[in-house]
């Protein structure tokens, strides 16, 4: 059944991001080395919402940083549109869990930041920023400094700032992890809105199963020790439609099955972790 679904949903869209056999070692003090990620291969297709899901410490952030160009793989390759990723660049904008809005800039200046440093003219920049500030529902706050914003609003500023740059691939590392349950729910529904209106490819990290099932078209489930891909999952129960209402999705056929399956994998991972410890 699962295999059938997978075969059915692997979309025909062109490949956007291809990770092949990525391995990442970190050197610790005293010359020791730790392998954070190995044999990591996965693909993200155009306009796909791909979620990296897995237990804590399995290397999700490490993979995302390699895609961002903030870390270099020890071996293997990471390609965007067929080109090897060797450095950070504006086509791969990243949103972090920690609040990163620049406190010395207003909301509008924050959103304009990427455009400004990339040399866009003031007028065009302003128009583009306006559009994205609208998109994240912050028009009323455009001239306000981040200290006056709530956590969810700060994250929306960060998202608008990255979207305004119109990246080929939007990277998000647990973007809603620091938010309370209600705000997180809002932000997840808001993400669906963004996905629908901006036709963008997203690679997002989370360890929240609900969030993954709600947002993802494609889930790359990772296992620990060493961090690697365990399984690709496609959220076929949505029939290719992104559902904006989180309650609706909770009642859909197939949601529970997939949730159970992922929960079981999570459990196996944690048992494995215990055995190794």
């Amino acid at each position: 059944m699962a295999a059938l679904q997978q075969a059915a949903r692997k979309s025909e869209a062109p490949l956007k991001l291809v990770a092949s056999d990525v391995r990442k070692e970190f050197s610790l003090r005293k010359g020791e080395k730790i392998t954070a990620v190995e044999k990591m291969s996965f693909e993200v297709r155009e306009n796909e919402m791909c979620v990296l899901l897995g237990p804590s410490g399995c290397g999700k952030s490490t993979v995302l940083k390699i895609v961002a160009g903030l870390e270099m793989p020890t071996s293997g390759s990471m390609r965007l549109d067929g080109r090897e990723i060797v450095a950070p660049g504006r086509e791969r904008g990243m949103v972090f869990q920690a609040y990163t809005s620049f406190p010395w800039l207003t909301v509008r200046q924050n959103v304009e930041y990427g455009l400004r440093i990339n040399g866009m003219g003031a007028k065009e920049r302003r128009e583009r920023a306006e559009y994205y500030i609208d998109l994240v529902h912050l028009s009323k706050f455009r001239d306000v400094y981040p200290k006056q914003l709530s956590g969810g609003m700060k994250q929306r500023v960060a998202i608008a700032r990255t979207l305004a740059n119109e990246p080929a691939l939007l990277l998000m590392d647990e973007p809603f992890g620091a938010l309370d349950a209600e705000t997180r729910w809002h932000m997840q529904e808001f993400m669906i809105e963004i996905l629908e209106s901006s036709k963008i490819t997203v690679l997002m990290v989370t360890h929240d199963i609900d969030e993954a099932l709600f947002l993802a078209d494609h889930i790359v489930f990772m296992s620990t020790h060493p961090g690697t891909k365990r399984e690709d999952l496609w959220t076929d129960f949505k029939n290719g439609v992104r559902i904006r209402d989180k309650e609706e999705i909770l009642g859909m056929d197939g949601y529970r099955d997939m949730e159970t399956k992922i929960l079981r994998m999570m459990r196996e991972e944690s048992l494995l972790k215990k055995q190794l410890a």
Binding site: A68, Y113, N118, L171
Partner: peptide
Amino acid sequence: KTEVIQTALTLGANRWQVLRTVIVPA
């Protein structure tokens, strides 16, 4: 914060721009 610097890098800032427009004001 490292994330603030990394954000600027993924928005397309070069090292000089990160210094001037992120680290110095921060």
